[in-house]
Amino acid sequence: MSAPTDQGGLRARKKQRTRAALIDAGLDLFLAHGYEATTIDEIAAAVEVSPRTFFRYFASKEDIALAKGAEFDELMLDALAARPAAEPPLDALRHAVLEMLRAAATDSGVQRFLSTQHLITKTPALLAGNLRRAAGTEERLTAEIAKRQRLDPAEDMRPRVLVGAVCSALRIGLEATCADPSRELDRMVELVAQAIGLATAGIPQRWGEDPHRW
C-alpha cells in the first residue's frame, strides 16, 4: 500500500530538484553573461532538459530571476507569523527580516544573494516584476501585523507605514552591503539592522488606541 505514496514522494522530490537546478543554472548564466543575453534554451541545456520541460516549471526567464526572492519572501512571512503573539510589532517584523536574511545567505551564500539582488535592481526588464512581487509581499506583511494588533489596515495606516519603513530599510541595508568590501553575513545583518533602526526611530514598541498617532 505504501508504493504509490513512495512513488508520489519521489516524483515530487525529482520535480523540486529540477526546479532548483533550473533556478541555479539561470542565475549562473544571468550573472555570467547578463539577463538579456541569456536564452531559455541555454538555461534548459545547462540542466539537460528540453525547453518544453522548462515551461512546465516557469512561464518565462523572468520567473527564474525572481524565484529566489519569492522563496525568501515566504521565509519572512512564515517567520513573522511564528513570532510570539505578545511581541511588539516592530520587534516581530525586525526579527522576521533578519531571520530571512540569515536563511537566504545560508541557502545561496551572501555573495550570490547580493549579486542576484544587484542584477534585479540594475535590469529594467526585471525591476517592474520585482516591484510587483515586493508590493504583494508588503500587503501580506501588513495584513499579518494588523492581525497581530487586532486592527483594520483599511482604517488604520500604522501597519502599512511600519511595513513600508522596514522594507525600505531592508533595501537600503542591502545596498550598503553591496558597497561593503567584506560582504559577510554578520556585516549584512548589522547594516540591515542599522537601517531598520534609523527608519523606525521614534516608533514605540506599544501602540496607543488613536490610529492617527503611534
Rank of each mutant, 00 (worst) to 15 (best):
D156P: 05
A154I: 12
A86K: 13
D24W: 06
V110Y: 00
G8C: 04
I23F: 09
A195S: 13
P153W: 11
A37S: 14
A12G: 02
F30L: 01
A165V: 07
A125L: 13
L131W: 11
L174E: 02
K122H: 15
R206C: 03
E42W: 02
F55D: 01
A79C: 02
A154L: 15
W207G: 00
D107C: 13
I203F: 06
D6G: 07
L174T: 13
M76T: 13
P159V: 12
K61F: 07
E190N: 07
L141H: 07
H95A: 15
R83I: 01
E209D: 13
C178L: 15
L93F: 03
I120P: 08
M76A: 15
A92H: 00
P84A: 10
T123Q: 08
L10Q: 08
D91F: 09
I145D: 09
D91R: 14
I43G: 03
F113D: 04
E74T: 13
P153Y: 15
P4L: 03
E87Y: 11
K68N: 12
F55H: 14
R52D: 10
S182N: 10
Q16E: 09
A25N: 10
A81Q: 11
K122L: 11
Q111R: 15
D24E: 10
A92T: 02
V192A: 04
T121Y: 13
S115K: 06
